[in-house]
Design a binder for these strands. Structure first.
Length: 271
DNA sequence: CTATGGACCTGAATGC
DNA sequence: TGCATTCAGGTCCATA
């Protein structure tokens, strides 16, 4: 479900409302990807200072420590005044004096992890090695090209790996490569500066557009207010195998890269 | 060091 | 209808 745009849209949908809230109780359901790291009781009484994002992680700053939230493949947050009935996939409730923050995650690839600070374990290790923030000023085209020069893997897989640039998941990798007219299978180190620049711009444009559109709702994404996204209406190639390319009408092709589906136009993305 | 495949988990869609 | 197989928006870890 969630790539950078969905995580950012989720963040914006509750960050201001939850700021200043005091934690009253914590409920944990089935185990998530990693343990919380402290007894849930330890969060009671903490006050939420801010909600930030790094890559696909949300960082909930507390007056003591920080909570890292990750939505995995199927995670979704909800922030509502009072807790709805608890379903079988509701695995974390943070009840505050301003509402309940709930993580709903059927596949449980998501996580809620506490650390003393961003630089303290286990946060440090989870955040270490993350690449540039694509929507920040600091995402530099020359540095992007230089980083790609060191990689022999197909460009699609380098985008997904997240250690060069963060936040680009399976949907937006295909979309950005289409926009940049680059074939997903080309080795990253074979991209010229000009083509790397096109990809750099395309990644930014696709992600920014998706944030504006409220994310992509393929089946069940919704922000913490329960609102769905609309970028699925703007998708050019993802999930469109066999359908006509929006530019040249050639049928979109599907291929497998590292057990993930990749979609591309064989004519618009010749190399 | 880099690249690759398997692992984690559940539900929906597809195929026989 | 029933049951098996495949696929899904992520990413860590072991292995080459």
């Amino acid at each position: 479900m969630p790539e950078l745009p969905e995580v950012e849209v989720t963040r914006r949908s509750f960050a201001e409302r939850i700021r200043g809230a005091r934690v009253q109780s914590v409920r944990m359901g089935k185990p998530l990807r990693w343990p919380l790291g402290v007894p849930p009781q330890a969060l009671v009484g903490r006050v939420i200072q801010a909600v930030r994002r790094r890559g696909k992680y949300l960082l909930v700053d507390l007056d003591e420590g920080v909570l890292l939230l990750h939505l995995g493949m199927s995670g979704r947050l909800l922030f509502v005044p009072s807790a709805p009935p608890v379903g079988p996939h509701d695995h974390f409730d943070l009840t505050t004096d301003r509402g309940v923050l709930r993580l709903h995650d059927p596949r449980r690839f998501g996580a809620v992890v506490w650390a003393r600070g961003e630089g303290a374990e286990p946060a440090r290790k989870l955040l270490a090695g993350l690449g540039a923030e694509p929507l920040d000023e600091g995402f530099d085209a020359a540095a992007f090209h230089a980083a790609l020069k060191k990689r022999h893997a197909p460009i699609k897989q380098v985008l997904l790996a997240g250690d060069v640039v963060v936040g680009v998941g399976n949907i937006y990798a295909s979309e950005a490569l289409f926009m940049a007219r680059i074939r997903p299978t080309v080795r990253a180190d074979r991209l010229s500066r000009e083509r790397a620049d096109r990809l750099h711009a395309a990644v930014r444009a696709v992600l920014a557009r998706a944030v504006e559109r409220g994310g992509t709702t393929l089946r069940d994404f919704a922000n913490a207010m329960g609102e769905t996204g609309h970028f699925q209406l703007d998708v050019a190639v993802y999930g469109r195998a066999g359908q006509a390319c929006v530019v040249c009408a050639t049928p979109i092709r599907l291929l497998r890269q590292g057990q993930r589906s990749t979609f591309f136009c064989p004519v618009c993305q010749r190399s």
